[in-house]
Design a protein around this nucleic acid. Structure first.
Lengths: 235, 235
DNA sequence: GGCGTTATTATACATATGTATATATATTAG
DNA sequence: CTAATATATATACATATGTATAATAACGCC
């Protein structure tokens, strides 16, 4: 509800999530009663219900319908069940977030530390209480298979984008990089894990978490560079 | 149910979790009807219900009572609510797991790679389908505050034990270590995050995940050692 | 106006849940 | 045996859920 910096709630429904209903058939402009509510309204209502104490997988159909101001049965006009809505939301959340982080990353390429900038953009989303992050951070481990799969897929997208970015930077700065796909996966999972931790803590604790996260990522980067230089084994 | 290697189910109820009921007052050996069921039986019944598609926070009181073969109301004789049972289970799971991992770690000190041994012990637990790991891996982000707090607390214990171990090893092998508390936190979170990912994948995928995890941890270790040697900044 | 079409709602039902209250059962002390 | 006591169950109630069926309402078109 609060429109804090980098608000992305206006993006709800504007992204093609690849999970759409049959096409609205634009040839025939209209026939029959007009829909008073849209898929996007329902998704927004559901999103509004999730929070620190409510996960999407525990939302009931009636609850969402109530929040959207429609009769329970009207839900079925838009989604087959709550799970389908949840998967669609996850996809949107992933796309929106990747866009934001991607922007932060490219914007920071010339400027300060790429690591620091990306992480701060991420945590800023956290602070702004964007529900999107809740979805990706805390709901990847519970819920239906379809749901968990959707979250995992989005995480993999993050990994892939980060991976190409890391390789590009490695070439550009002529630093070596050992197994970039493992590096990007480690960084992604670490950021999401620490983000989930941060979400359960008061905002005063965030700076320290950010600082630790930056240090962790630096260790991984230096590690991969060192391993690229000398392929020794050590522990 | 299956008693695979390193079965820890016999530990149910044998550990003091610090969440116990009022003392049974051993002075007076008994008075009144004997309890046909124990707290531990209830916990075992609940544990038996969790699995890849069921998280503990979604178990209902009646469901657990049914699985334990008692009337719903009898539940209250042992726990105030499901949440209290869940927290107790989390504590037991954490203690049991720390013991197993700790053994693997100390046992491996003289032998091969400490990193590899610990991670393999961890993943072996996963493979053996010990429900304990389910609790710690996938349920830390949803559920009541008490529940999430309990999981977080157990994770912190893991971090602390790993931290002292890392410092001991650093001294012993005369390798530097930069900010060991951050290192141990990164490793812990990474292992748990990758473990959660592995749990949703077929067993054939586990070896690759293990290999990646080992590489990730090596990167962190080499990173912290390198940073201890030269406190430069890089990215 | 009426008609087809679509969206929405009303009502209803079977089922599940947490828990309050009352009752039954087993056990020990006297 | 009886009383006391701890434990377990039976019954019941208010409430919530998913969804089936039927009715209602708005829209474009003839």
């Amino acid at each position: 509800m609060t429109s804090t910096p980098k608000d992305v709630s206006h993006l709800v429904g504007t992204l093609d999530t690849g999970t759409d209903q049959p096409p609205p058939d634009r040839a025939r402009p209209h026939v029959g009663r007009r829909a008073v509510i849209s898929r996007e309204d329902l998704m927004a209502a559901a999103l509004q219900l999730v929070g620190p104490h409510r996960s999407i997988s525990t939302l009931s159909l009636r609850e969402i319908a109530r929040a959207a101001g429609i009769a329970p049965n009207s839900f079925y006009r838009h989604f087959r069940d709550v799970d389908e809505l949840a998967v669609t939301l996850i996809n949107q959340a992933g796309e929106a977030l990747r866009q934001i982080i991607g922007e932060a990353r490219t914007r920071a390429v010339a400027e300060r530390s790429v690591v620091q900038s990306s992480i701060e953009a991420f945590m800023e989303q956290l602070r702004a209480d964007q529900k999107y992050l809740h979805l990706l951070l805390r709901e990847g481990t519970v819920g239906s298979d379809a749901f968990k799969g959707a979250v995992e897929r989005q995480l993999c997208f993050f990994e892939e984008e980060l991976c190409t970015d890391l390789q590009r930077l490695a070439v550009q700065r002529d630093t070596g990089i050992y197994r970039p796909e493992v590096v990007s996966r480690a960084i992604t999972r670490l950021v999401f894990a620490m983000g989930a931790k941060a979400m359960d803590q008061p905002e005063e604790a965030h700076p320290e978490i950010i600082e630790q996260l930056v240090t962790m990522v630096r260790m991984i980067i230096i590690g991969t560079q060192t391993m690229a230089a000398r392929p020794a084994r050590d522990d």
